[in-house]
C-alpha cells in the first residue's frame, strides 16, 4: 500500500514538474568564442574557426506536422560559434557525399537553417516549431542552389538539360520591360529565384505557414562550401542592429536547427530538425 502511494506521489510530482517547466526549454549550451577583427564572419574556410570546439547537434526526422519526412538520412551536424564584438558567426557542418544544387521537378536542393527568437526571454521561449503568435522567430536559411547562383551564375535550361532546344525566349525578341512580364517570380524578386545577392534568406515566422522573407531588411550573410564530402556553411549576423534580432542584449539567445538533404527529396516541412532549443552564450 505504502509503495503504491509513493508511486502515485512520484507521478503527481512528475506531472506538476512537466506542467510548470517551459515546454520549449533550452537544454545544452554553446559558447561563442571571441575572435579578432570587426568584419562579418561569413567565410566557411577562414582560420577563425580553427581551434573552436564544435558541438554536435542531434537531428530527427520531422514527423509531427504534415507533410512529414519519416525517413531522414542525416542525423547529426556540428555547430561552431564565434564573435568579434561586431558580428556573430555560426559554422554548420555535416557529412553529405552528394552535392544537390541543381533543381528540376524531381530534384531538390540541400539546405540548412538556424532559428532564433526575435526577442529572447529565457523563461518564455517561442514554440520551437516555427514560433507562435506574438512570439516570432527569425529563420536564416542557406540553400545550395542559391550558393550555386552566387558562385557560378544561375544555371540555364541548357545547363539543366544539355540536349534541350528552344526557339526563342521573350527576352530575346521583346523590349526588356515587356519581356519582364514573362519572368514570373523572378521578376517579382522572389528570393528563391536568384541567389546572386545572397545564398541565404532571412525570414520571420509566427507559426506554421507564416514564414515570410524580410526583403531589404535582411541582415544575415554567409556562404556554403562543399569540401571533403561535407557541407561547411557559415552564417553571420550583426550583434547590434536597429531592426532584426537583438543578439547583444542579455548575452545569450536560443538556437534551433533544421536540415534538408536534397537527395532524399527533403523540402519545406519534410526535413530533419533539432527538437529542442540550444542556448548560445555570447560572452562580452
Amino acid at each position: 500500500m505504502k509503495v503504491k502511494t509513493y508511486i502515485c506521489n512520484l507521478l503527481a510530482v512528475a506531472a506538476v514538474t512537466a506542467f510548470v517547466s517551459p515546454l520549449w526549454a533550452a537544454d545544452p549550451v554553446l559558447m561563442a568564442t571571441k575572435v579578432s577583427g570587426d568584419g562579418p564572419l561569413n567565410d566557411p574556410s577562414a582560420s577563425y574557426w580553427n581551434g573552436v570546439k564544435p558541438m554536435e547537434v542531434t537531428l530527427e526526422p520531422q514527423t509531427t506536422v504534415a507533410p512529414t519526412q519519416p525517413n531522414g538520412t542525416i542525423d547529426k551536424m556540428n555547430v561552431r560559434a564565434v564573435q568579434n564584438g561586431k558580428y556573430i558567426g555560426l559554422l554548420l557542418e555535416w557529412k553529405d557525399a552528394a552535392v544537390d544544387h541543381l533543381m528540376t521537378t524531381d530534384h531538390f536542393g540541400d539546405q540548412v537553417a538556424v532559428e532564433l527568437p526575435v526577442t529572447y526571454n529565457k523563461d518564455d521561449l517561442p514554440n520551437i516549431m516555427m514560433g507562435e503568435s506574438g512570439k516570432p522567430v527569425s529563420v536564416w536559411q542557406w540553400r545550395a542552389p542559391l550558393q550555386y547562383d552566387k558562385d557560378k551564375g544561375k544555371p540555364s535550361t541548357k545547363d539543366l538539360y544539355p540536349n534541350s532546344h528552344y526557339d526563342m525566349y521573350p527576352d530575346q525578341i521583346l523590349p526588356a520591360e515587356t519581356a519582364k512580364l514573362y519572368t514570373g517570380a523572378h521578376g517579382l524578386q522572389n528570393p528563391v529565384s536568384d541567389g546572386k545577392k545572397s545564398a541565404i534568406m532571412e525570414m520571420v515566422a509566427e507559426g506554421f505557414g507564416t514564414l515570410t522573407f524580410v526583403g531589404d531588411q535582411q541582415l544575415v550573410d554567409g556562404n556554403g562550401l562543399h569540401k571533403d564530402g561535407q557541407w561547411h556553411v557559415a552564417l553571420t549576423y550583426p550583434l547590434q542592429s536597429a531592426t532584426g534580432v537583438q543578439l547583444a542584449k542579455g548575452g545569450e539567445t536560443a538556437l534551433g536547427f533544421a536540415l534538408w538533404e536534397g537527395g532524399n527529396k527533403d523540402v519545406g516541412s519534410r526535413k530533419s530538425w533539432a527538437p529542442t532549443w540550444l542556448t548560445l552564450q555570447l560572452p562580452q
Binding site: 528540376t104 521537378t105 544561375k154 519572368t183 522572389n190 528563391v192 529565384s193
Partner: peptide
C-alpha cells in the same frame, strides 16, 4: 516545395526550373 505538384491529381501545377517556384 512542389507540394502542389505532388498533391494535384490532375497535375496542373508545374515546377518552373528558372523561377524555382
Amino acid at each position: 516545395y512542389r507540394e502542389c505538384v505532388k498533391g494535384c491529381p490532375y497535375k496542373k501545377p508545374f515546377f518552373n526550373t528558372n523561377t524555382r517556384t
